[in-house]
Computed example of a mutant assay.
Amino acid sequence: MTVGGSALLGPVDVRRLAAELDVRPTKKLGQNFVHDPNTVRRIVAAAGLDPADVVLEVGPGLGSLTLALLPACARVLAVEIDPVLAARLPATARERAPDLADRLTVLPADALRVRADQLDGEPTALVANLPYNIAVPVVLHLLAELPSLRTVLVMVQAEVADRMAAGPGGKVYGVPSVKVAWYAQARRVATVPRSVFWPVPNVDSALVLMTRRPTPDADRAAVFAVVDAAFAQRRKTLRAALAGWAGSAARAEEVLTAAGVDPKRRGEQLTVDDFVRIASRA
């Protein structure tokens, strides 16, 4: 299937490329390759890219999503930890999207450690099929490291998607929910069946769309320390859960009261702005 001058990969193409490279998808690297052209088109459409966007793709793998991104933006900066896959990706782009291949830059690196000065340009959007085991740390690291990112559209495990996009009050609302909310407004936009991957994972996936919001005027590390403490013992009241962080339960109650937060509430009931107020009173 061809999209905007880019011939997308199907199931036969994905397996052929894997065989050529002697790549056996590993659980350690969270490798589940998308082999359905319609799925990668849905991902690109959901990202709402502008032709001027510079897209950061994490874990491009064999290039299924990369080929769909190339016609939709100005440039794609692909970060790939597997050196074999990173070396092959430019050739795949030249073979299947010859007129667009010069838009692609590949950086062989670990996305959890990548720095802004390593990238050839300032990405405005992150679009990626993320390995399940590092999805949240990767998103939080890149939002912190790359203030140029205005939009994030990631495909992650459905359960992780729910946690990223959750609002206060629900059972799945927790540390990832609050820390994502520090940077962006997040919402789950689509479910992705497991059948579009090779190998087939044992869970469904989902797309989460995040739109950058103004960062709170507070010390991020201080706020995140409160968040971590509040959810470390999430069944306890904030007075009890924050006792270690504040130095004592009595001191935690003083801080909470000064911040306008009922000490009898629990962390799962608070917004990121509530946590900002608590940290500011410490």
Results as ranks from 00 to 15, higher is better:
224 F>P: 08
209 L>T: 02
164 M>G: 09
30 G>W: 01
6 S>P: 08
275 F>Y: 12
36 D>T: 13
231 F>P: 00
101 A>Y: 00
203 V>G: 06
191 T>Q: 12
39 T>I: 10
255 V>H: 04
34 V>D: 01
110 D>M: 06
207 L>D: 03
156 V>T: 03
84 V>Q: 10
95 E>Y: 00
265 R>T: 04
17 L>I: 15
249 A>S: 15
113 R>Q: 14
239 R>M: 12
52 A>R: 15
164 M>N: 05
229 A>L: 11
170 G>M: 02
134 I>V: 15
195 S>T: 15
52 A>Y: 14
150 R>F: 09
229 A>E: 11
182 W>D: 00
53 D>Y: 11
252 A>T: 05
210 M>G: 05
43 I>F: 13
198 W>N: 01
265 R>C: 05
3 V>E: 13
132 Y>T: 00
11 P>S: 15
166 A>N: 03
28 K>Y: 03
199 P>T: 02
111 A>F: 01
266 R>N: 11
224 F>H: 12
158 A>F: 07
212 R>M: 08
122 E>I: 03
21 L>K: 08
141 H>M: 10
152 V>A: 13
52 A>V: 13
211 T>Y: 00
123 P>K: 01
15 R>A: 04
170 G>N: 07
104 L>S: 02
143 L>R: 08
237 T>M: 12
188 R>Y: 14
171 K>W: 02
231 F>W: 05
79 V>Q: 07
99 D>A: 15
140 L>Y: 06
174 G>E: 04
178 V>N: 09
233 Q>L: 09
51 P>G: 14
